[in-house]
Computed example of a mutant assay.
Amino acid sequence: MVLEAKDNKVISAKFNGERTQQWLLQPDPSGKCKVALASLVDGQYVQLQQDQVKLGRSPFYWEIVEKGDTYRLGEGQNKLAVPLSSGDACKIKIVASDQEEDESVTLFVFEDTPEVRGALRLGTKGQLGESELSVSYTDGQAGQIRIHNHLESTIYAAVSAPLGADKSFAQWAVKPDTWERWSRSADESVHISLGDGCIGGQTATIVRGETGKVLHVHSLPSNPKWEVCVGSTPGVPRAYVGKVGFTLQINDL
């Protein structure tokens, strides 16, 4: 769930990438460890008003507490909570200790990049916490997603497609300093790994492939959170994404 400004309210919502879900973090000019959240839609601030979370024109500076790669915003024991159900209003939750575990007050702060947008659309932060993933985009051919490998070793890539679409789901080997292309009319998810097939512990990740663009792969994470498993029936190869620590059940091929 992400923080969204809607109808002068602050709600929890599924990611869609609109400006209503984009916020500018402004540091407290007094130098205290506080930040204000300003909406990129109309500049209104997330405020704490009589134990309620509202939008207002004046900056309200929240105490920010860092916990690993996550953050908590609040005022004393009153923490900003983002409900886990889409559409619910954000609220204040009393948390006695910063060591207390509570998903609703555990926040991530991400930059607005194609990789972040791609991962959030998939419903996971994926490799967003890793600094070793490096990709870039340049203009390409209309109706195509191209992947250019800048690594010194071969990578294996597959591009998703809408359910029922007559498109190739095949995983292709992309040799160093070469590229491969997939015909796609819209942006899709790109599954990239250094290993061929379901190899335990392989380096794998998911990034956003933009139609009409070339996705340049400069480096991949060394600590994978994802594995890519490839299965097929004659003439219909498919790429499946397995989450490490979970069982991927394939009922039909």
Rank of each mutant, 00 (worst) to 15 (best):
F246W: 12
D177K: 15
V35H: 11
H216P: 14
G74R: 04
K14E: 03
K67H: 01
L151H: 15
A119S: 11
S232W: 02
Y156H: 12
G195F: 11
L107F: 00
V207P: 02
E103Q: 08
V2N: 01
A38C: 12
P29Q: 00
L107R: 01
K213P: 07
K34Y: 10
N251F: 02
V116I: 14
V217N: 08
K93Y: 01
D139F: 04
Q171T: 09
Y240M: 04
I147W: 10
R238Q: 11
V116W: 03
G209M: 02
V105K: 01
R72C: 01
E115D: 12
S104P: 10
W23N: 08
A81N: 11
Q49C: 11
G235V: 05
N251W: 04
A13W: 02
S12R: 00
S39Q: 04
A158L: 01
G87I: 06
L55T: 00
R238V: 12
E103G: 03
S131G: 15
K34T: 05
C90F: 03
K54F: 09
G43N: 07
S30C: 03
M1F: 02
W172Q: 13
A119N: 13
L24F: 13
L122A: 09
Q99R: 01
T70A: 03
K14F: 10
T211C: 12
R121G: 04
D139Y: 03
K9W: 01
E152N: 15
S97E: 12
V35L: 15
D42I: 02
T205H: 06
L253Y: 14
S183P: 02
G245F: 13
T247C: 09
S85D: 08
G118K: 06
D187C: 08
G76Q: 07
Q50A: 13
K79E: 05
D139C: 03
S58K: 08
V35E: 12
S39V: 08
Y61Q: 03
L215W: 14
T205R: 04
G143F: 01
E130K: 06
S97G: 04
S189C: 05
P29C: 04
L80P: 06
G76K: 05
V217S: 06
G245N: 14
A239Q: 02
V65S: 07
Q21M: 07
G164V: 07
G129M: 07
N251R: 11
H191Q: 11
T70V: 13
L248F: 06
W172L: 10
R146W: 05
G31Q: 09
R238M: 13
Y45Q: 06
